[in-house]
Design a protein around this nucleic acid. Structure first.
Lengths: 217, 217
DNA sequence: ATTCTAATAGCACGAACGTTCGTTTATATG
DNA sequence: CATATAAACGAACGTTCGTGCTATTAGAAT
C-alpha cells in the first residue's frame, strides 16, 4: 500500500500539483471509509507526507472535505456526464447517462463505489456546508437526468403522459439500488441486472419513434 | 437535549433495563451520526452516565455496534415486518411491506431516517462482523419482499412472466430512492411520490384477479 | 550564485477516542 | 443485620484527532 505523492504531470505551480494528488487520494479514501471518517493523519500517511504539510493546503478539515467533494465532482463529470453528452439528445442520452453511471460503479472509478451516493447518506443528517454542497451536486445530477427525459419527450421519444422528472428519479433509484446490492452483497451481477431493469423501464415508456438503444455492454 | 436513562418499565434485572435504554439511544444516535461515528463518550453524555459504566455493558466498541444493530432490527421488525403480516398473503402483503417501510421513514421511527439503509452504505467497504450482520439483515429483508412476491404469483395476483426477486428489488430500490430524496433535499413529498410510483409499478405487473390495494395514506 | 517566496516538516497543544483498573454504591440473599 | 453480587463511577492509560506556530527546505527570479 501507500504510494508516495503521485507525480501529477508538471506544468503548474508545484503546490497545485501536490494539492491535486492529495485530493485524488482523499476522494479514494473517502469513498471507502466515508467523507466524515476521512482523517488528516490517515491521509498524510497514505501520501507519505506530514500532517502539517498536508493541512497547510486547506486550513481546516471542512475545507478539505469541500475540496474533496469538488474533486469527486470533477472526476464524476469526466467519467459520466461528459461521455454521455456524446450520445444524441433525447432518449439515447438518458440511457447513456444511466449506462455510464453503472459503468463508473462497475469499474470502481471511486474505489469504494459511488462517492456521492455514499456521501449523501452519510451527511443527510449533518447540517453544514459539506452537506449543502453534496445536496447541490445531486440536485444538479437529477436535473441533468430530468432534462434528458424532457428532451426525449420533445423529440417524441417519450410518451407524452410520462413525467420526465419522475422517470429520471425512477431510473436513478434503480441504479442506486444496483450499487447498493453490488457492494453490500458482493454481487457482481447486480449492476448488469439493473441495467436490464432500467432498459426495460425505458422501453415501456418509449414511443415507437424512439431510436433503438443498444445495451453498451 | 439529553434525558437521563429512560426508566424502561421494570420487571427484569436492573442491568438489562439500562442496557436497553443505552441501545435505544444508540440506535437513535447512530441513525443520525452514523454507526461508525457512534462514540461511547457521546452516548454516555446523552444518557448522563459514565463512559466506563456504559462500556462495561459491552466490553468493546464492536460489541456495542453489533448490539445496536440488533436493537435496530427489533425496532424494524416491530414497526414494519410484524404489522405487514396482518395483511393477507400475496400482493396486498407486498404492498403493505412497502407502505409500512415508507411510513417508518416518514414517522422517523429512527431519528435519522432509515437505520439500515444508512448503515449499509456506511459499512459496505468496511470488512468485519458489523458489516456482515448488516448484510445478513438486509438479505433477509429482501427475502421477505421476494417471498411476498412469490406468494402473490402463486395466488395468481402477479403475472407469471414477472420475476418475483426482480420485482422485490425494484420496489425496494424505489423506496430507498424516496428516502434518499426526502432526507437529502428535505423534500417532504418525496415518500408520497414514491408511494405512487410503487403502486403504479405493482399495478402494471398485477393480474386482473389481484385484489384492490388502497393507498394506506 | 544569491535572494525571495512558497511549500513542507517538526513539534506541541488540548480534546476526544477506546479501554483498563480499583473503588464505591445499589440490590438481592442469607 | 450481615454479606455477596451486580452495576456504575472516576481517574488514568496510550493513541489519535484537528489545529496552531516556527523552522527548514526547494524552486523561481534576479
Amino acid at each position: 500500500m501507500s504510494a508516495a505523492v503521485k507525480p501529477v504531470p508538471p506544468g503548474r505551480p508545484r503546490g497545485a500539483r501536490t494539492r491535486e494528488s492529495i485530493l485524488r487520494a482523499a476522494v479514494d479514501l473517502a469513498s471507502m471509509e466515508g467523507l466524515a471518517g476521512l482523517t488528516i493523519g490517515r491521509l498524510a500517511d497514505e501520501l507519505e507526507m506530514s500532517k502539517s504539510g498536508l493541512f497547510a493546503h486547506f486550513g481546516s478539515k471542512e475545507e478539505l472535505q469541500l475540496a474533496t467533494v469538488e474533486m469527486a465532482r470533477t472526476i464524476f463529470v469526466e467519467h459520466v456526464i461528459n461521455p454521455a453528452l456524446a450520445a444524441p439528445k433525447g432518449m439515447p442520452r438518458l440511457w447513456a447517462l444511466c449506462n455510464l453511471w453503472l459503468e463508473h460503479v462497475e469499474e470502481r472509478i471511486f474505489s469504494g463505489g459511488c462517492f456521492f451516493t455514499a456521501a449523501s447518506f452519510e451527511f443527510d443528517s449533518r447540517p453544514g456546508a459539506v452537506r449543502d454542497r453534496i445536496a447541490q451536486v445531486m440536485r444538479k445530477w437529477l436535473d441533468i437526468l430530468t432534462r434528458a427525459a424532457q428532451s426525449a419527450q420533445e423529440a417524441g421519444h417519450l410518451k407524452a403522459a410520462i413525467d420526465p422528472a419522475g422517470l429520471a428519479f425512477e431510473v436513478y433509484s434503480l441504479a442506486m439500488g444496483g450499487y447498493w446490492a453490488k457492494e453490500l452483497f458482493h454481487d457482481s451481477k447486480a449492476t448488469a441486472q439493473v441495467r436490464s431493469a432500467i432498459l426495460e423501464r425505458i422501453r415501456a415508456v418509449a414511443t415507437k419513434s424512439c431510436p433503438r438503444m443498444p445495451p453498451r455492454r
